[in-house]
Design a protein around this nucleic acid. Structure first.
Lengths: 143, 143
DNA sequence: TTCTTACATTATAATTGTTATAATTAATTT
DNA sequence: AAATTAATTATAACAATTATAATGTAAGAA
């Protein structure tokens, strides 16, 4: 609940209106510990907001991203997934069922420094994903 | 040239037919040191193969990916980019102009091990991208 | 070689995720 | 409350990719 309150404060501070739809999308993102797609959010809120447009979901996710509340994750060819930003973390992804698990790892700043040094880029950030099979899928695989 | 030859051998070994189109796509991927999109490849080979279909490009890129010759890179919302696999490396990407520079970093196996340990996943591989501004774009930015 | 079968390519249509547009509605400022 | 600004809706457009069906091509069997 604290997260939601803080997020709403962030919106207020940046002059973004807090509409019922935005509230609902944010709340869903925070509560669902998964990393939903825009369509999943849309479908999940269909009950509460029968008239809400998909465009609204996309629009608001973009707004949240611009404000820094939400990260857009784009894997493979499927649709983008959205992650409420808490602390910096990485994702471990099951190539079989698509499950995404958060994973913390401290020391990758060094990589940024080295990359900056080698390429001359002004490095801002990085992302990393680890791929494999989740325990459930791994146990089902043929050996 | 050696790379192309080896790639063709790989195709032969895996029973994939080497058609003129496949040869051309592979050659283009290897020679262009960039990371072209399917459409760029399509347009680049238009001269040589006026009748080639976009589907052929996509089909063959998929075949190459399945055989392990090519990696598909999917960033943001733009179109996928394709990278001929040589040695394992990471990408440094300019958020302004989209330029992609290769970058080597040895010690990220440890991350895989830790991830596996913490999440119980059977980890297969990982990817990492570093984002920032390339020297050219950085120098143009307002300070 | 010719026949047969399996695979590739082509052209086109369909699909999917996302964005743009215009009209309507709601919220904030004056 | 009136005026202004922003948000939502419904719909159309778009772009990247994939599926489909027809045609073409190559490799192995007869």
């Amino acid at each position: 609940m604290k997260q939601l309150k803080e997020a709403l404060d962030t919106l207020k501070d940046t002059g973004v209106r807090i509409t019922p739809q935005r509230h609902a999308v944010l709340e869903y993102l925070i509560n669902s510990m998964s990393h939903p797609t825009a369509d999943e959010i849309y479908k999940a809120l269909e009950g509460k907001f029968p008239n809400m447009s998909v465009a609204t979901v996309y629009n608001n996710l973009r707004v949240f991203r611009e404000v820094g509340l939400v990260k857009e994750l784009t894997y493979g060819d499927a649709s983008a997934r959205f992650d409420f930003v808490t602390t910096h973390h990485y994702h471990v992804i099951c190539e079989n069922c698509g499950k995404i698990v958060d994973f913390h790892y401290p020391g990758l700043d060094e990589v940024e420094h080295l990359a900056s040094h080698v390429t001359g880029f002004k490095v801002e950030n990085h992302r990393m994903e680890i791929y494999g099979s989740c325990p459930e899928c791994a146990s089902k695989e043929v050996h």
